[in-house]
């Protein structure tokens, strides 16, 4: 068995995959930002024990965590559009679905971070008659957020690795570019190997950075 490896094909596929990589990174960054903000909102709603709303948030989080991301991608893209007539691009749909999906995971991270803040901080804030909003923004969150940064970093890497799922709804991210190139030239070995190497290198560098961050701020 001889491996038929063509460096010419690698050179040809390289710029194509780079263009896909830009899309992959755009999706990752936007979805990550969405998950950071929405996850925090979910966590605060759940912990504030607002009747009905807190329970609904809990149910939503459990349902999202118990179903596959790919199923959610298809549901959002096909069902929502046919039901409501709202037309979102595949790119934007992907960002929203990945962002909301991971918000259900980051909310648990925030919750752990908030619970790690000593109870005395809450009591002191109450004793000082601080309004509820100020307690969150000035006392609790500034202490909770730094500790959750490494966990958020790990979820960001996970999101980066989930972006290929969006080829199912036609987003031209990196794997889709590799597939396209492989289908046109039949050089599947080079195309997929190159895509794999790109993913590996970026996620490895990112995980080293997260580990460094971890040693600086400590884990939960």
């Amino acid at each position: 068995m001889t491996v038929d490896w063509s460096w010419h094909a690698v050179a040809e596929a390289f710029p194509l995959l780079l263009r896909g990589l830009v899309v992959t990174l755009e999706i990752t960054v936007l979805a990550a930002l969405l998950s950071y903000v929405l996850g925090l909102v979910f966590a605060v709603i759940r912990m504030s024990r607002i009747p009905v709303l807190s329970q609904l948030t809990f149910l939503f989080i459990e349902a999202v965590r118990s179903t596959p991301l790919l199923v959610q991608v298809f549901m959002f893209y096909y069902v929502l559009q046919s039901q409501t007539g709202i037309l979102l691009s595949a790119f934007l749909s992907g960002v929203i679905v990945i962002g909301v999906h991971y918000a259900c995971y980051t909310s648990e991270v925030y919750r752990a971070g908030i619970e790690a803040v000593p109870k005395g901080q809450w009591e002191a804030a109450t004793a000082l008659n601080l309004p509820r909003g100020r307690v969150w923004t000035s006392v609790i969150l500034p202490q909770a957020v730094p500790r959750v940064l490494p966990a958020l970093g790990n979820y960001t890497i996970a999101m980066f690795k989930e972006t290929p799922l969006l080829l199912g709804i036609g987003v031209l991210e990196m794997l889709n570019r590799a597939k396209e190139y492989g289908a046109e030239t039949f050089r599947v070995l080079e195309a997929y190997t190159l895509a794999g190497v790109f993913f590996l290198v970026i996620s490895y560098i990112a995980s080293v950075m997260v580990r460094r961050l971890e040693s600086r701020v400590g884990t939960l």
Binding site: M1, L167, L175, K179, L189, Y192
Partner: peptide, 24 residues
């Protein structure tokens, strides 16, 4: 371990599904 954890499952699935047949 590093390689498998560092690449997406879908990329691995595609690689196996499309590359293996080229080796027969």
């Amino acid at each position: 371990v590093l390689f498998v954890r560092g690449t997406p499952l879908l990329v691995q699935a595609y690689a196996a599904f499309f590359i293996l047949p080229t080796f027969g």
